[in-house]
């Protein structure tokens, strides 16, 4: 069997998830040996229009980018979204809370209405095309990415956690961030990160997106217990949770 051809593409993002592929360090040599990387602009000069697996980083923010992602989808057998910008829209979705014309003027002043500064609502990739697999996180975790790629190469379906960060945080025996008076959104955020942030003394800010069925009632109980309001919670949810929407069917 010939090696699957893999192409990596980026849209609006910080390119930090591509960096996590580079950050696999020695392990990347094994992965590169198992596939045929045909396009990866940040690391290679080559380009290609023929590939089996497309790996997508970044959010879709402009009409021209919607066309581009549709073309990529039509060429790829499998499409993997990597990182919060691609899987849930990520930090880029903060923009959707503002009037877009006003946003352009805020950053660029009088020049803000120039044509090349056109911007649309930020969308996750699956709001535009079908996504086969998601590697969550901001940035994604390199080992989880390697796991998903290995599963695909072996014809297996990767298992991505659908339980909250609190499960992993408790296993690490961390003191709950709520006890420190912080608003931590671990109770409704998808695990799989190993509760890295609370383990480093920092509240969860939800970069892996919500679990499929967040237990809103339990979250409300937690808010009541610590004497906080829904507005307090909302101000933290907004970072990575701005208008997360149902996925493309």
């Amino acid at each position: 069997m010939s090696k699957p051809r893999v192409a990596i593409f980026d849209f609006a993002c910080c390119e930090g998830c591509q960096l996590q592929i580079v950050n696999l360090e020695e392990e990347i040599l094994d992965l590169i040996g198992a596939v045929d990387v045909v396009e990866w602009r940040e690391a290679m000069a080559e380009t290609s229009e023929e590939y089996d697996i497309a790996i997508i980083e970044g959010s879709i923010t402009r009409p021209e980018d919607e066309d581009r992602i549709r073309t990529i989808r039509s060429r790829a057998k499998i499409l993997i979204a990597i990182g919060a910008c691609a899987t849930i829209g990520g930090i880029n979705k903060l923009k959707n809370n503002f009037d877009l014309d006003e946003v352009r003027n805020c950053v660029y002043g009088e020049a803000g209405q120039m044509e090349h500064l056109e911007t649309g609502q930020t969308k996750a990739v699956d709001e535009v095309v079908k996504v086969d697999y998601k590697v969550h996180g901001c940035p994604m975790t390199g080992s989880e990415f390697a796991y998903v790629v290995r599963c695909l190469l072996m014809g297996k379906t990767p298992e991505i956690p659908d339980y909250p960060v609190c499960v992993e945080c408790k296993m690490k025996e961390n003191v709950c961030r709520w006890e420190y008076g912080e608003i931590c959104i671990g109770p409704i955020t998808r695990a799989g990160c190993g509760a890295k942030c609370p383990s480093a003394g920092f509240r969860c800010f939800g970069c892996r997106g919500y679990v499929d069925n967040p237990n809103v009632e339990a979250a409300k109980e937690v808010m009541d217990k610590y004497g906080l309001t829904v507005d307090d919670l909302r101000s933290k949810l907004v970072l990575f949770g701005s208008k997360q929407r149902p996925t493309y069917e």
Partner: peptide
């Protein structure tokens, strides 16, 4: 031709510790 991302607009309204 990078897609602009408008960070200066997006931070408005956010708390200092975010």
């Amino acid at each position: 031709p990078e897609a602009p991302r408008f960070f200066e607009a997006m931070v408005r309204g956010r708390h200092f510790d975010d």
